[in-house]
């Protein structure tokens, strides 16, 4: 009897886990995690005409210096892929970059604050005549550069 009960709930859990991850792979998206589709590197980049975008962040400090921002957890505390995941909303609303300036002030208080933040993109098109250009996707003049928290 006890063995049967143990087998019963284990069967249910097996069904939920396997069913969940299969369903996530067939019809789900990232927000289904832990049952999200195994979608890393699952997209198609065509040999001819395929596009490779590598976004990155630049900033102008209050001292006027141009800097490339370390988009990783050790420096800014936000990774490039995390910014990429929200790129569309940042481009649509560059005001979200105020939050990035705040994050920089919180995480790297010893460094000069930023006056302006820019989302840049290293854009490549594959093919017999490859194209490469640097694009500016969004620009934001930081509100209260010396104390960006006030501009949130």
């Amino acid at each position: 009897m006890r063995e049967g009960v143990g087998a019963g709930w284990r069967l249910v859990v097996t069904g939920l886990v396997v069913g969940g991850v299969v369903a996530g792979s067939l019809v789900g998206d990232d927000r289904w995690w832990p049952f999200a589709p195994m979608a890393q590197y699952a997209f198609l980049v065509e040999d001819d005409g395929g596009v490779i975008n590598s976004p990155y962040l630049e900033a102008t400090t209050v001292d006027g210096e141009e800097v490339r921002v370390g988009l990783d957890r050790e420096h800014l505390g936000l990774e490039r892929s995390e910014l990429e995941g929200q790129l569309a909303s940042v481009v649509a609303d560059p005001g979200k970059l105020q939050a990035v300036a705040v994050l920089h002030a919180r995480r790297q208080p010893e460094l000069p604050r930023w006056r302006q933040v820019r989302v840049m993109n290293d854009h490549r098109v594959l093919g017999p005549e490859p194209v490469r250009e640097i694009q500016t996707l969004a620009t934001w003049d930081v509100v209260h550069p010396l104390d960006p928290e006030r501009g949130l």
């Binding site: 990232d30 999200a36 979608a39 890393q40 936000l78 990774e79 892929s81 995390e82 990429e84 995941g85």
Partner: peptide, 8 residues
């Protein structure tokens, strides 16, 4: 994974 990057 709640900051728009999900690994599998």
């Amino acid at each position: 994974f709640s900051y728009s990057k999900i690994d599998h």
